[in-house]
């Protein structure tokens, strides 16, 4: 049973399309990163899965049922972007209120607040909370009743680095326990190590989806090799030129090192040649990061056009 399955989903707001033809699935025990520029349709996607809206076209199934059914939403945890709470209530009162609504046991409230690091602020009114504390309370709220599907919109906003690391560790534990997790974030380097798959949205369409290796293949972006020459830079340069058949690899010298951008399929041939020549002392390989991939997919769609029309 998938956590959710969007099948050719389209949604229009006052006739202008917000989402077009989205196919997306999340399996249990998986963390999916949902990325896109502002207004790309991430929040709409989430609202469709939460059952707050119904698509104009296509079907949404969530946890084997209908999006928005009470029996289904009971098993979904959601942290909205910029979460806000009743300022006059304490953290404990708010969590009790939401636990009752969710039909979850009240016993877990103090434990959850402890888990997100609000143990000391349990009985303080939330109007005294900082942004980070509100965010943690929002997280505790999302975790009520052990959700099978967890959707977090910008969960690390306002969190300090230690709290952020704690959050990701917690998410990994939940994932290993079989929870399906959707993570929306603009802090791409931060989430990169933790996501199993990424989905990139632009202008309401799914530009790319898959694990990072698949996305790298799809993007076909060059891999950057950083080479330390064993003897001289020119000798190493010569070796590279010959191995690549002068195919226009970009070679840059940086304080006695060489940076070479190579297409993924030519990478191993070049490496073998360099190794055999004995002209290299050290090699480091930089795969395109999530950020690079993101810019690649977004750039080829929206921004590049805007740039090109000037």
């Amino acid at each position: 049973m998938s956590c959710f399955h969007l099948d050719n989903v389209s949604y229009r707001y006052d006739r202008s399309p917000v989402l077009t033809g989205i196919d997306l699935t999340l399996e249990p025990g998986e963390i999916l990163g949902l990325f896109g520029h502002n207004g790309a349709g991430k929040t709409t996607c989430i609202k469709l899965i939460l059952g707050l809206m119904t698509p104009n076209q296509g079907s949404v199934s969530v946890l084997g049922g209908h999006a928005g059914d009470p029996q289904i939403t009971q098993h979904i945890g959601y942290l909205p972007e910029n979460v806000m709470f009743y300022p006059q209530l304490t953290g404990r009162e708010i969590l009790n209120h939401f636990a009752r609504l969710k039909g979850a046991s009240l016993n877990q409230v103090p434990q959850l607040l402890e888990q997100v690091g609000l143990g000391d602020a349990l009985d303080a009114r939330t109007k005294t909370y900082s942004k980070g504390m509100r965010q943690r309370l929002g997280l505790a709220q999302a975790l009520l009743g052990k959700p099978k599907l967890l959707m977090l919109d910008e969960p690390t906003v306002g969190l300090d680095p230690v709290a952020t690391a704690d959050l990701y560790r917690l998410l990994r534990e939940l994932r290993d326990g079989g929870t399906g997790i959707v993570l929306c974030s603009h802090v791409l380097p931060g989430v990169e190590p933790y996501i199993d798959r990424a989905a990139i949205l632009t202008n309401g369409a799914l530009k790319a989806a898959g694990d990072l290796a698949a996305l790298r293949r799809q993007a076909n972006m060059p891999v950057t090799l950083s080479l330390d020459p064993a003897n001289s830079v020119s000798a190493l340069e010569h070796v590279i030129d010959r191995a690549s058949g002068n195919s226009g690899l970009i070679i840059k010298t940086e304080s006695g090192r060489l940076r070479v951008d190579v297409q993924p399929r030519e990478k191993m041939a070049l490496l073998n040649a360099v190794m055999r020549s004995g002209e290299v002392a050290d090699i480091s390989i930089h795969q395109p990061s999530l950020e690079d991939i993101y810019v690649h997919f977004i750039g080829s769609g929206g921004l590049a056009h805007r740039g090109g029309s000037q």
Binding site: L52, Q71, P80, V83, M84, Y86, L101, G103
Partner: peptide
């Protein structure tokens, strides 16, 4: 305005 309506409606609550 307080930002809680959206959250409430994601709960098992019509």
């Amino acid at each position: 305005e307080g930002g809680t309506l959206l959250l409430l409606l994601t709960y098992p609550l019509s």
